[in-house]
Design a protein around this nucleic acid. Structure first.
Length: 394
DNA sequence: GATCCACTGGAAGATAAGGAAT
DNA sequence: ATTCCTTATCTTCCAGTGGATC
């Protein structure tokens, strides 16, 4: 039998399990979708400026899909208005400046990096002006710009400031992080906060219904064991409550069953799928680490091996300086290493537990590995430079 | 209950690197 | 070339926190 032939048919339309699949409806998010629609209603009614809106929620809660669906409905229902929707993902941008420059590049194909800030904004306004009377700008993953939130202040006010004469702009910001809202400058809150919409994590039963709808399309009839969907939903809801994750579990489980030429997807496939996907997530997080990040990780790893985790920052730091000396690298200051550790926490590799009850009082962190020790060691060991040190610590 | 002190996190500024305009 | 702009990384400094200690 050929490499690409299979005796069993598991999938019917596996696209339904892909990341870019836009479902027909999101019954679990009706209220939230209504709220987004409310923000756009002024434009639909009379061509007035759409309100601004801010959408919050962790990854995999249907924020992007929800906004896209509302935009689609808007396009279907509103036919007598000269408008345009710009969906821009800020994932790669770390400041307002790069958002503006890259968005301009995406719209026109022309790079304008290197210009002054004002020039860059002016160029974008010119471009927007030339496009449509009403423009809805969706800024996805806007939290990646951190505290540099100029663009969120400038864009909604552009018309009032006279940068855009007839063009009406509405901004919909999508953020994965709740902290981002708290860190916004007050002037941004005033201008941008017409509407705030929260997407709280799905619970297990919502995840089950989501999975059932997808499975209906994706799989052949009768290939799913009864406990497959509940288990995938349970795994995901225990972790992040993310639909994306639950769907990944289900997809991977289907692939595993298919590869093994099995007639049905079984519980064990889901368990195996969860392991594979967890590992992939750590690997992805680890690819972007700098050398200093990895050194900080090694210190935590070392403490974990010695059974001394979770450990305080001071302890991790002294282990870190040892490792640096071992490798002939200049150690960073403690303040900096703490930031590296917090980055590892963000990447989901290390967990920072905040305590208030220290030996001497005051707030402090305790650091430990998030994932299985052996697995993290495996992955870290695959990095040649850092891998050399692994034998030293274990 | 005043003081101690290990720790956090914000801010200021140094340095390096890189693109655009002059 | 030089100046002007950006970002990223890292130091240094320091005010604030709050249980422990006296």
């Amino acid at each position: 039998m050929g490499r690409f032939q299979s005796t069993t048919q598991i999938f019917a339309n596996e696209e339904a399990l892909g990341d870019d699949w836009v479902p027909e409806a999101l019954p679990e998010r009706e209220d939230e979708l209504d709220a987004i629609a409310t923000a756009l209603r002024p434009a639909a009614r009379s061509g007035a400026s759409p309100h601004n809106a801010f959408v919050f929620g962790k990854t995999g809660q249907g924020k992007t899909v929800g906004v896209k669906q509302i935009v689609r409905e808007f396009k279907e229902d509103v036919t007598d208005l000269d408008f345009e929707v710009i969906h821009y993902s800020c994932k790669k941008d770390t400041s307002s400046y790069t958002v503006v420059a890259n968005m301009y590049e995406e719209l026109t194909g022309e790079s304008i990096r290197g210009h002054g800030k004002k020039k860059v904004f002016d160029l974008l306004y010119e471009e927007l002006k030339s496009r449509s009377e009403t423009i809805i700008i969706v800024l996805d993953e806007i939290d990646s710009i951190g505290t540099d939130d100029d663009i969120l202040y400038e864009l909604p006010r552009a018309r009032a400031e006279g940068h855009l004469e007839e063009t009406k702009v509405g901004v919909i910001g999508i953020s994965n992080s709740f902290d981002f809202r708290d860190n916004l400058s007050p002037k941004v809150r005033d201008t941008l906060y017409d509407e705030e919409i929260q997407f709280s994590p799905y619970d297990a039963s919502q995840l089950r219904s989501i999975l059932r709808r997808r499975a209906e399309v994706a799989f052949q009839d009768e290939v799913l064991d009864d406990d497959v969907i509940p288990l995938a939903a349970a795994f995901a809801s225990q972790d992040k409550g993310s639909a994306r994750q639950a769907i990944q579990f289900l997809y991977k489980a289907g692939e595993l069953a298919s590869e093994n030429d099995e007639e049905t997807i079984k519980e064990e496939h889901v368990r195996e799928a969860e392991e594979i996907i967890d590992r992939a997530a750590i690997e992805r997080g680890m690819r972007d680490l700098t050398t200093q990040d990895k050194l900080a990780l090694l210190a935590v790893l070392d403490l974990e091996v010695d059974g001394e985790a979770p450990a305080r920052t001071r302890v991790v730091y002294s282990r870190y300086t040892d490792i640096c000396n071992e490798m002939d690298i200049d150690p960073n200051a403690l303040r900096r290493v703490r930031d590296h550790l917090l980055e590892l926490d963000m990447a989901g590799i290390v967990v920072a537990n905040q305590h208030q009850t220290g030996v001497r009082g005051g707030p402090h962190y305790r650091w430990e590995l998030d994932e299985d020790l052996g697995m993290t060691m495996d992955i870290v060991g695959e990095d040649s430079r850092v891998g050399e040190v692994i034998p030293l610590i274990s």
